[in-house]
Simulated assay, not measured.
Amino acid sequence: MANVEISFEPSRIDFQKTSEILKESYWGDGRSDEIHRRAFDSSFCAAAFIDGEQVGFARAVTDYACFAYLCDVIIWPDRRGAGIGKKLIAALLDHPDLAGVGSWSLRTGDAHKLYEQFGFVISTDGMYMRLARKPA
């Protein structure tokens, strides 16, 4: 596999390409660039690069102490299946600013096996609740 570089520098993220790819995902359908801009600006973002070209993105919504929510993990379609997503997730989980966070969560409709490799389990303990509503 090509050498994958993970960067946490927001200025390196190709915002337009990332926003477009996320809008094509099953979870990002209906989002706008404005929503993505607010979300990215309020999150700890990471991007994957090969030879200087961005090929993936992920972000964590976090308080940097107790809780983090892993979301918008996406690899560009022509780069999937090469382990880039694993490197991106590991880099976020292991980043010094996030390594002490004890409670991580995420939502997925199709990548359970990927996240299980990192210790994520389906919540069946009756403690987690969810409110889903349309934004105002």
Rank of each mutant, 00 (worst) to 15 (best):
A2E: 13
N3C: 00
E5H: 13
E5R: 12
I6Q: 06
P10Y: 05
S11A: 15
R12M: 12
D14W: 03
K17N: 06
I21R: 10
K23R: 15
E24G: 07
W27D: 03
G28F: 10
D29Q: 15
R31V: 04
D33L: 01
R37D: 04
S42C: 08
A48M: 05
F49P: 03
I50D: 13
D51H: 10
G56K: 07
F57L: 07
T62R: 01
A65Q: 10
A65V: 13
A68Q: 03
Y69E: 11
Y69S: 14
V73A: 02
I74G: 01
R79A: 10
R79D: 06
R80N: 08
L88C: 04
A90C: 07
L92T: 04
H95D: 06
D97Y: 09
A99P: 00
G100E: 11
V101Y: 05
V101E: 02
V101T: 03
V101N: 04
L106C: 05
T108Q: 05
H112Q: 14
K113Q: 15
K113C: 02
K113G: 06
L114C: 03
L114Q: 04
Q117D: 12
Q117I: 07
F118C: 07
D125N: 14
D125T: 06
M129L: 11
M129E: 15
M129W: 11
R133I: 07
P135Y: 10
